[in-house]
C-alpha cells in the first residue's frame, strides 16, 4: 500500500496529484454503435478536438487506459468483453457511459438482446444522455469527469453518486 492509497497523503500532495491526473487522461474508446461516430467526431474532427482538454485518445491497449467511453448499444453478447476490458484497466479507472443505449437501453428498452444499461455490469462515473449525444455533450461529460478527479480523494474513489450531464 502506497501513501496515496492508504488515505494518509497530505492535502497539498493529493491536490497536485489530482491536477496531474486530470489533464493526462488516456481515453480508451469502446465504440459500439451510432454514438461511436459522435465520439469519433470528438476525437478526429478539428471542430471538437478532445486533445485540447488534455485527453489523449487511442491507447494501444486497455491496460494503459485511465478512462473508457462506452458509446453505443451494449448487447448481451458484448457484455463479457466489456467486463473483461474493465478488469484489464489499471486503477484508478473511470467510465463514461455515452448515449441512451449505454445509459438505460434507450430506444431498445424492450428488446430481447440489449442490455439495459452498462451500469448493470460496470460502475459508471458520468452518464451522457442523448441519442446520440452531440459531441459537445461528450466534451461536457469529460469536463465534469475532470472536475470530479480534481476534487476527489484518491483513497475513496467510488464514494458518491454518478454525475449526470444535463
Amino acid at each position: 500500500m502506497g501513501l496515496v492509497a492508504s488515505g494518509k497523503a497530505p492535502k497539498p500532495l493529493t491536490k497536485l496529484l489530482n491536477l496531474g491526473r486530470k489533464y493526462s487522461i488516456w481515453m480508451y474508446q469502446w465504440g459500439l454503435a451510432c454514438c461511436a461516430i459522435e465520439m469519433g467526431a470528438v476525437i478526429g474532427s478539428p471542430r471538437y478536438d478532445v486533445m485540447r482538454l488534455g485527453v489523449i485518445p487511442f491507447p494501444a491497449s486497455p491496460r494503459q487506459a485511465d478512462l473508457v467511453v462506452i458509446s453505443g448499444t451494449v448487447t448481451d453478447k458484448m457484455v463479457p468483453s466489456i467486463l473483461r476490458l474493465y478488469q484489464q484497466m489499471p486503477d484508478p479507472k473511470y467510465v463514461i457511459s455515452m448515449g441512451s443505449c449505454a445509459n438505460c437501453g434507450g430506444p431498445y428498452w424492450d428488446s430481447y438482446s440489449v442490455t439495459k444499461g452498462v451500469d448493470q455490469v460496470i460502475p459508471v462515473d458520468v452518464y451522457v444522455p442523448g441519442c446520440p449525444p452531440r459531441p459537445e455533450a461528450l466534451l461536457e461529460g469529460i469536463v465534469l469527469l475532470q472536475e470530479r478527479i480534481s476534487n476527489e480523494d484518491p483513497a475513496a474513489r467510488w464514494r458518491g453518486d454518478p454525475i449526470v450531464v444535463d
Binding site: 459500439l32 454503435a33 448499444t73 448487447t75 453478447k77 458484448m78 431498445y108 424492450d110 428488446s111 430481447y112 438482446s113 440489449v114
Partner: peptide, 10 residues
Amino acid sequence: GYMHRGYEKL
C-alpha cells in the same frame, strides 16, 4: 451478432 438489437421483432 454483437450488435443485434432485434429490429424485426421490435
